[in-house]
Amino acid sequence: MAGQISIRPISRKADRKKFVDLPFRLYQDDPHWVPPLKGEALGLITPEKNGWFSHARAQLFLAERDGVVVGRISAHIDTLALTMPAAQGFGPGCGQFGLLDAEDEAIAGALIAAAEAWLTKEGMTRVLGPISMSIWEEPGLLIEGYDHPPTIMMGHAKPEYRGWIERAGYRPAKQLKTYDLDITRKFPPLIERIIASGEKNRRIAIRMVDKSKFDEEAAIILAILNDAWSDNWGFVPLTPPEIKDVGVKLKPIVFNDLIRIAELDGKPVAFMITLPDLNEAIKPLNGTMLPFGWARLLLWLRKPRVRTMRVPLMGVIRELQSSRMASQLAFMMIEFIRRAAVADYAATRGEIGWVLDDNQGMNAIADALDCRVNKIYQIYEKSI
């Protein structure tokens, strides 16, 4: 007879290791799961190693049966998110859960209840989730697109999790979509004409970033991002400790020709970040750099050859949003990066996202490029 399930809060390093190790067992037979590097996964949940904790607090929980870990969840509160307008998703009294994995529905239900109890004790009245752990990391539960691996910084989940969360009383709050694009094909004639017109416009310059001036370029992009995204659902401004962490994490996969800044009359007004899909390189490592994984990864980073490029972030200043100029700049940046991705990195596929389901501008751009939705992630909410 199976033993009783126990749920306990954790804080010790040894327990955090168990927390990270659980998905390696639960997903071991899933060919589309990408094992994260364990050091990165531990850093995410360790306050001393994640700048997000400078304005957030979290409680991790493990579920155990007969001494074996059978589930996990995080409950967390982002103090910056509490200051945002409730109409934009977060707001006062809104806590979150994330990093949910469990062997069965009963365990998942008990973990969710434990997370809710902790959030209630901390004064929260509403929950959004799953968000793991910042909205800038891996938000949402995969509900469509289980048949292929996620790209860098996107999540994966078991199909049954959707029903488990919904039967725990959660209802959909927002959907996030990713778009698939065959970048070996030229764009439709209308889009090509728009791009050609922009290339002749002396007011417009689409330039590569200069990695040797990483901090300066990052500041330009961050200023556009905070302006462009400030009214978006789920927006929480990035803080200096988080920016520092992102820089350390992403700098090895930053390539000048894959990140573009659009200037209008000499002023930076838009940007597009594209990253080679690091998941293609780390999936065979099974979470560890030893004994020779570090050497293989280092060699890959020198000049990646990838199937997929991911566009995690684009932005155009609010002054230009909903204008023809905004669309033209977006098409130009996408095209310039497409050319480099195919010619210099042997890429054949692009993935744009995530994109909010009500982001009319980005959805229209994706439609114009003949993209197709390849994954949908859902964020749920519940009053507690």
Score class of each variant (00 low, 15 high):
residue 29 D to H: 14
residue 29 D to A: 14
residue 30 D to G: 02
residue 31 P to I: 07
residue 32 H to T: 09
residue 33 W to C: 03
residue 36 P to D: 06
residue 37 L to A: 08
residue 39 G to W: 12
residue 39 G to N: 14
residue 39 G to Q: 10
residue 51 G to P: 10
residue 51 G to N: 06
residue 52 W to P: 04
residue 55 H to S: 10
residue 57 R to G: 06
residue 57 R to F: 01
residue 62 L to M: 07
residue 63 A to E: 06
residue 64 E to T: 13
residue 66 D to A: 12
residue 67 G to A: 11
residue 68 V to A: 15
residue 69 V to R: 09
residue 73 I to C: 05
residue 75 A to T: 07
residue 76 H to M: 08
residue 80 L to K: 11
residue 84 M to A: 14
residue 86 A to T: 09
residue 87 A to W: 05
residue 88 Q to I: 00
residue 88 Q to F: 06
residue 89 G to S: 01
residue 90 F to P: 00
residue 91 G to Y: 11
residue 91 G to D: 12
residue 93 G to S: 03
residue 94 C to N: 03
residue 94 C to S: 13
residue 94 C to V: 15
residue 99 L to G: 02
residue 99 L to E: 00
residue 102 A to T: 09
residue 103 E to C: 08
residue 106 A to R: 13
residue 106 A to N: 13
residue 108 A to N: 08
residue 109 G to T: 11
residue 112 I to K: 05
residue 117 A to N: 07
residue 117 A to T: 11
residue 118 W to H: 12
residue 118 W to P: 00
residue 119 L to D: 01
residue 121 K to F: 12
residue 123 G to R: 05
residue 124 M to W: 11
residue 125 T to R: 14
residue 126 R to P: 00
residue 127 V to H: 03
residue 128 L to A: 02
residue 130 P to Q: 08
residue 132 S to K: 09
residue 134 S to K: 02
residue 134 S to V: 02
residue 135 I to C: 10
residue 137 E to N: 05
residue 141 L to M: 03
residue 142 L to E: 05
residue 144 E to C: 09
residue 145 G to V: 05
residue 145 G to L: 01
residue 146 Y to H: 14
residue 148 H to Y: 11
residue 148 H to K: 15
residue 152 I to Q: 08
residue 155 G to T: 09
residue 155 G to P: 06
residue 157 A to P: 00
residue 157 A to Q: 08
residue 157 A to W: 02
residue 159 P to G: 13
residue 160 E to C: 12
residue 160 E to G: 04
